[in-house]
Design a protein around this nucleic acid. Sequence first.
DNA 1: ATTTTGCGTGAATCGTACG
DNA 2: ACGTACGATTCACGCAAAA
Lengths: 377, 377
Amino acid sequence: MDRVALKERTREHAPAMAARPPLPLGQILDGDCIEAMRALPSASVDMVFADPPYNLQLGGDLARPDGSHVDAVTQDWDKFDSFAAYDAFTRAWLAEARRVLKPDGSLWVIGSYHNIFRVGAILQDMGFWILNDIVWRKANPMPNFKGTRFTNAHETLIWASMGEKARYTFNYRAMKTLNDELQMRSDWVLPICGGQERIRKGGAKAHPTQKPEALLYRVMLATTNKGDVVLDPFFGTGTTGAVARRLGREWIGCEREPVYRDVARERIEMALPLDESSLKTMQSARTAPKVAFGLLVETGWIAAGTQVFDRKGRHRATVRADGSLVSGDADGSIHGLGAKLQGAPSCNGWTFWHIEHQGEVKPVDAIRQLYLLATEP
Amino acid sequence: MDRVALKERTREHAPAMAARPPLPLGQILDGDCIEAMRALPSASVDMVFADPPYNLQLGGDLARPDGSHVDAVTQDWDKFDSFAAYDAFTRAWLAEARRVLKPDGSLWVIGSYHNIFRVGAILQDMGFWILNDIVWRKANPMPNFKGTRFTNAHETLIWASMGEKARYTFNYRAMKTLNDELQMRSDWVLPICGGQERIRKGGAKAHPTQKPEALLYRVMLATTNKGDVVLDPFFGTGTTGAVARRLGREWIGCEREPVYRDVARERIEMALPLDESSLKTMQSARTAPKVAFGLLVETGWIAAGTQVFDRKGRHRATVRADGSLVSGDADGSIHGLGAKLQGAPSCNGWTFWHIEHQGEVKPVDAIRQLYLLATEP
DNA sequence: ATTTTGCGTGAATCGTACG
DNA sequence: ACGTACGATTCACGCAAAA
């Protein structure tokens, strides 16, 4: 895995070499996240992923043109008296996040224009060093029903290290493989969380702001390594925990609503960890084609760990988490490995590799077509 | 054109009713932008578009509000001090921008993750109300050569009104037309400025951060009207002026570098204004000529006594001679009765009620459109 | 069984004029 | 500063019901 930049030496993060309290791995801590984080030792986690309240400040009710009611975020946890109050809250949880992060760890925060500018400025003031801002471009956002503004079709994530000179983890090669051999950009197109993935209780959504697993998948695959500890101070229904388990990362959550904690625990229990070979991500350079095979893995159209094979059954391979394939000692992109196994100069992996899908054997290109049909036109 | 929300009345923006200094339209003001803006009358411009310096370490570009120089010589410079200086500079120019903006005017700022979070938080603190954050997704960004981060493939714009209750201009219909009859979203894909458009002096680019005209075109078309005054405090090579001229908007620039001023003047002179007919944009119903339902009855397009019904045939009503509807005991306007029968708080009668016209079932809005077509000058 | 149509819904700062 | 009346406004996706 890639380690970038020099190791930062700061007194505040010198690891305590004496006996340290054990980390509550795989646990959801009860109560206020700031209090909960205080119970954790300093410099002990590799990543913090935070989806704090956005402080939306919504007005009255909103109706669609057809008269139906928009189910808005009206929860108390999103209410703050003023920008100053929100800022104080933000400083408090960020300070704890900074304390528990290892010097080489990194921070992710997601937000919208309501809060993200404040969060970004505060974390800069605290010494965090912004590495990228990432735009999650929603494939299917809610429209602006009244025609008063531009459709609010994205959210923003900030990725920051502990300081300008800090090392941090960035799995460049895995990201490039995931993006079909093009550098991963700062704008990610992903659908919002809906369908089977959206957790419902009695027909209603269990949590108003559940994030898609594909988003966390990319975040974690890009900036943590297997076995790393990921802390989510605003755990909600546990998307972070579910993805961490799938990707072989350790996790700790904080969540003060008992209902969300229950939902999260049940959900994470059902998340199946990927096996060892699927988790190994590409380490070296390869060459390959166009529409990302990795995107199909990330979005769950093809699960990591899935077996693929050629039409005559002479070659088999396993899909890894970053969209690469592994077959015995050999690995590569769908195209590279196909060529290697056949001893051919090149291979169109999309038509070479097949998959069993709904009881039928289909080329993986068929899955791509399904994805394209479902997302593009 | 659309005006949204109530007119804000604040003392700070009460227009001076006495003689006002004339606006220096079509001029590039010399010197520091904060000083230059001080020469402009309060509440006099409709839009401010600002592309402030991004890089916090451009010591030469940073001056404190009192004019003193920000010392940025030492390599190990104090981040907090530099952020504070940048914030002071930002507050100073935003305060002047706020003073010169009309109560119904709006502000645009473009930036990257280096500065946009600070700018956004500060403008919120000053009372500006964020309407959208817009992501300019670069079609052709510079790659990340070292492979240490995600390719930084976007910049962020903030669009803000003078306050929560302020009116602002948003040409919804023009944007929808521009976007192939779909609502314009908050993510815009546009190429960076290059090729013929990129101004060069002796082979080298004349300005390091020249923005594409397409970006300003969309900004101005969306949020100003013909004849509006647009102020750009960081004029550079005058993209704002060139697009303003093309779109029939007035402009004022501030730029302290003589070289940029010369380039901008020459460039804007060559920009050809569009003719009147090209400038006419699609109007929303809100601003299109109003047609009362009663007028259609009065003029015989819909006869009194005609039966109207909702699309699913659950409700029927009869048109009365005064343009009201009656259904059993209930009556009212097309909107009021529609709402009443559905038990809804409101209803768009134009699309709710249908009529049989030439053997087809059509919303009554279709008849209004026919009327408009037939009576259009 | 397969295709078409209908309907519900998603982190939303979502109206204006005139009494 | 209210209240009240008028009237303008939606995209993509998942799933269920119907054809």
